[in-house]
Amino acid sequence: MAKQGVDNAEMKKIGMIQQKQKEYFALRLRVVGGDLNPDQFRKVAEIAEIYGDGNIHITTRQGIEIHNVYYTKLEKAKDELQTVGIRMGACGPRVRIVVACPGDKTCRWGSIETKGMAARIDEKYFGSETPHKFKFSVTGCPHNCAKASENDIGIMGGILPKWQEEGCIDCNLCVNICPTQAISCENGRYCLDEQKCINCSICTASCPTNSWEIEKKGYIVLIGGTMGKIPRLASRLTGIVENQDDLMRYIDAAFSYYKQHGRKKERFGHMIDRIGLEKTKGDILNEI
């Protein structure tokens, strides 16, 4: 690869990002949901030492970058990473690495499995060309550790609670711990305001008699979140979607809509603001 012939836009597609020191590149690795195995970690360390200057950078989106790789060494570094199954990340106007929190495998609050979900999204969308950069995140519950609402499409686990009179000892704990005051009590009867409920499962997890039961559990789709120069928090596209195949249909409809209507260099959320949230949601849901 001759230095003169380096096409930066092409390089970005495969996660090779030119540094301000023009002969040097950062190698961005495709780390889905922040997980690597020990062999991969060892290989990353080895490559950073041999082909870079030993610097390994953890990005804000759970990714890993090997910095200061001289341009003549890029191909070899990439090939060697591939031997342990590490593929290259992406930069530029396309789908980036999918982030995920640990989810229900290890977190007591997790309402969904996040890693497999992130892998499924990564498999289907990673690297797809989009009007501007496009970020996915999968977070296990409304605690939102993986910041689903800061991503173009965020998937969030959640539950819908239901009160059962039987067993309730009228302790009033649920009313006092619901973070959005979605639970109220009248004459010993507890009511849920679904508009206020953020599906966090704090009530079902804490009720001493399990009188708050999980009626529904699944995925909530958020669209149009972004940080950057003009931050915008994502908006809810759906309520709780119980089935993973249905979820993929919602994601697909939202993603296609953005690809079709987003202007060059316009993030999904800013497109939504231009078109209008209600219209965008209506159009997307109409496609399902």
Binding site: I169, C171, L173, V175, I177, A205, S206, P208
Partner: peptide, 16 residues
């Protein structure tokens, strides 16, 4: 209260 529940204890009343 949630941790107490996990340990097998029971909340009887909560008053603000």
């Amino acid at each position: 209260p949630r941790s107490l529940k996990d340990e097998g204890h029971k909340i009887i009343k909560v008053e603000k």
